[in-house]
Simulated scan of single mutants.
Amino acid sequence: MKKIPRFNSCDLLNQEDLTQDFVIFDLQQILTQRNNIASVPHKHLFYQLLFITKGEGKHFIDFQTYHVKKGDLFFLNPGQVHKWDFNSSTNGFIINFTEDFISSFLSDNHFLDLLPFFSNTSNQDSILNIDNHYSTILNIFDKINFEIHLQKDTDLNLVRVYLLELFLLCKKHYFHTDNFSYNQLQPSNLVKQFEFLVEKHFYKLRFPKEYAELLCVTPNYLNSICQKIRGQSAGELIRSRILLESKRLLVNTDLSASEIAYKLSFKDNSYFSRFFKKHTGIAPDEYRKS
């Protein structure tokens, strides 16, 4: 059975080939030594940051294409399918880290889930261009790289502090560039919690009222906040996540439409086919061949 390649420990090895919860690579090193792996669709079991400091090319995340340029910073969740096609002069940094690397350091176990740029429901949130703060962000990556590779006694807690600094600066940049006001921060946080629950339960829970109950709000309030923050209702966000997974499975596996319907908890294949065609305009088998 054809499956999406899934990388775990192979991308969490340090220079001594020891498995770590955190690693940082020079992008040129990856392009030179392992570009054949990253240039095919794959997913990870860890979080990944990709920061472009030079060059150009294309980065494909699920079913969107990004033309990369200097200053682009990508945030990838575990499970997101991506590949890249960069020219040979492209440079930057790649950071891979496990959830435990951060959560073990913080009292808030959902810190990563509530960051606006780690989202599986909207790939548009997965990229920031930090032109105005390029030197500051580059300095953080340089400090992390120095601590990991050049210091005799690496202090991982210091690396965690640098990583948190990066996240908090990017969060501030995100809200500033999207013109969020102070009054919108609390509703935005609710939407992130909703998206976190959708990511966790979309295989089984399909209705806004089920998520509203988990969030202790009314379905109408959840819908209105999602519409205000995301431009889509709660139901549309749930359907978008199911549709994304459907496309991933159709394109990157050889599961039949019936098997995908069963995996996604549709009551039968015909119901899945109607759902898919309604939202894409074509049948699942046609989409697979396109």
Rank of each mutant, 00 (worst) to 15 (best):
residue 110 H to M: 12
residue 142 D to R: 13
residue 119 S to P: 07
residue 121 T to H: 08
residue 113 D to F: 07
residue 98 T to H: 01
residue 120 N to E: 11
residue 96 N to C: 07
residue 137 I to K: 02
residue 124 Q to H: 13
residue 102 I to M: 06
residue 140 I to D: 00
residue 136 T to A: 12
residue 103 S to Y: 08
residue 105 F to Y: 15
residue 97 F to N: 05
residue 107 S to L: 14
residue 101 F to V: 08
residue 100 D to K: 15
residue 143 K to A: 15
residue 130 I to L: 09
residue 130 I to R: 04
residue 111 F to T: 08
residue 106 L to H: 10
residue 100 D to W: 08
residue 106 L to V: 11
residue 101 F to N: 02
residue 137 I to W: 04
residue 135 S to I: 10
residue 142 D to V: 10
residue 145 N to L: 04
residue 95 I to H: 00
residue 128 L to Q: 05
residue 137 I to S: 03
residue 128 L to C: 03
residue 130 I to V: 15
residue 133 H to C: 11
residue 114 L to E: 12
residue 111 F to Q: 01
residue 122 S to D: 15
residue 114 L to R: 12
residue 101 F to M: 08
residue 143 K to N: 15
residue 102 I to H: 05
residue 121 T to W: 02
residue 108 D to Y: 06
residue 146 F to G: 10
residue 126 S to D: 02
residue 95 I to D: 00
residue 125 D to S: 14
residue 141 F to S: 03
residue 130 I to T: 12
residue 116 P to F: 01
residue 131 D to K: 10
residue 144 I to F: 04
residue 121 T to M: 10
residue 105 F to D: 11
residue 141 F to W: 01
residue 119 S to E: 08
residue 116 P to H: 07
residue 129 N to D: 05
residue 108 D to N: 14
residue 123 N to I: 11
residue 100 D to H: 13
residue 115 L to D: 01
residue 118 F to N: 00
residue 112 L to F: 02
residue 97 F to D: 02
residue 124 Q to V: 12
residue 104 S to G: 15
residue 136 T to Q: 14
residue 124 Q to S: 14
residue 144 I to C: 03
residue 97 F to R: 06
residue 105 F to R: 15
residue 121 T to P: 03
residue 122 S to P: 07
residue 136 T to L: 12
